[in-house]
Design a protein around this nucleic acid. Structure first.
Lengths: 209, 209
DNA sequence: AAGATATCTGTACGGCGCTTAGATATGAAA
DNA sequence: TTTCATATCTAAGCGCCGTACAGATATCTT
């Protein structure tokens, strides 16, 4: 967890309670799961009174929003790394695998991310390319790199959304026991993920590495 | 809502409080959304004391489970109707559209269904064909009808899972405002859904496998 | 040094999930 | 029909929750 106590934001009593609260929330989330994430528990974990968080967040939802925001940043980073590590036509499936693995390795955080997004009916992804490229744009750019026509804007957007749907859908499904047997018969979780992606016409038949 | 007050289950005071509670929960869910679904509120809606539900459900999760169960049955019905109404190679995409439309038309119920499933780490779908065919099996059977090799069991299962991932992913994504502009430029929600499905190599407009 | 302001504590309110004890209605046995 | 066990429901209460508010305290500005 980063500290980020720069010169222009040096608060009063605690040092940086806002930061401490988000960190405490993420600690609780990892240790106890989303259902344990009460505002009071977070305040307790941070060592302050139950009312203290209200000086930094309008309500509980705003705290969770801050947690979710860090989750999306982590996801962006994971996918950036995956894209950089893969070569050519495997880049897209590498992004998909990275997405699903992020969800598998951070299930509680992933849940908070989408719960917060649903509350606002908006994914916190930039569909325009910005300074820091969102994971969504990485997928779209990769499609262009692999030969999609960048001037067919609507089609490109649809293909990107389709890929995102596939990733999210598989991320949610992969956690169910229903598919344990199938996973085992394929030799583990990763072959399973790759096989499902292969069936979703977006991803090239790639060699499991 | 069915009554189902048969001879062997004719309870004591209320008549059928269990039934009444599930109905009250679904009424609340539709009217106020999932966050309003407290056990006490359900009891209030049904006109009984806050402790009464505990004689019919172990805890809140078990009540929500009963609600979720009815949701899966509704989904099965909707997809059976869609499959019956479609012809030939359009059957699969009809199933996909029906799935997404169910989620769009019953967002709170759909949420409860998957929340309950995640808690148990198991989707309440029969992967074997049973007396009442689950929606999942309908998808798989349709794939066989459209030419998939039923003896390639692993491959068939993978294709079915891929389709389910696509449906679920799109169902969750379609609710976000992010894509409103794109939907509009395609002439509405349904063309948007069909276009995304088309990009997910499973559905006609192109040839499956 | 003094006032304004931001931060945090203490306390309180109503609602929640759930437990327990006791009241009441029902079905079975006498 | 009376009796009794049992199933059902109510009343009350516990600890936790999100949140509001008043007051104390530390920091910033002047």
């Amino acid at each position: 967890m980063s500290e980020a106590k720069s010169a222009e934001s040096r608060p009063y009593h605690h040092g940086d309670l806002r930061r401490a609260l988000v960190d405490a929330a993420r600690r609780l989330l990892e240790a106890e799961g989303p259902s344990a994430l009460s505002l009071r528990a977070v305040a307790r974990e941070a060592g302050v009174s139950p009312a203290a968080p209200y000086h930094h967040f309008k309500d509980k939802a705003e705290l969770l929003d801050a947690v979710a925001h860090e989750g999306w940043e982590l996801l962006d980073g994971a996918m950036a790394a995956a894209k950089a590590a893969a070569e050519g036509p495997q880049k897209l499936s590498a992004l998909g695998i990275a997405y699903v693995c992020f969800a598998r390795d951070n299930p509680a955080l992933y849940r908070v991310m989408y719960d917060a997004a649903r509350d606002k009916e908006a994914l916190p992804i930039d569909m325009q390319n910005g300074e820091k490229e969102s994971a969504y744009c990485k997928v779209r750019d990769t499609m262009v790199e692999l030969g999609a026509d960048p001037t067919a804007e609507v089609d490109l957007e649809l293909a990107t959304i389709a890929a995102w749907c596939a990733g999210h859908g598989l991320a949610e499904m992969a956690g169910f026991r229903q598919f344990d047997q199938l996973k085992a018969s394929l030799g583990g979780e990763r072959p399973f993920l790759e096989a499902v992606f292969t069936h979703l016409g977006l991803f090239p038949q790639h060699t499991p590495r």
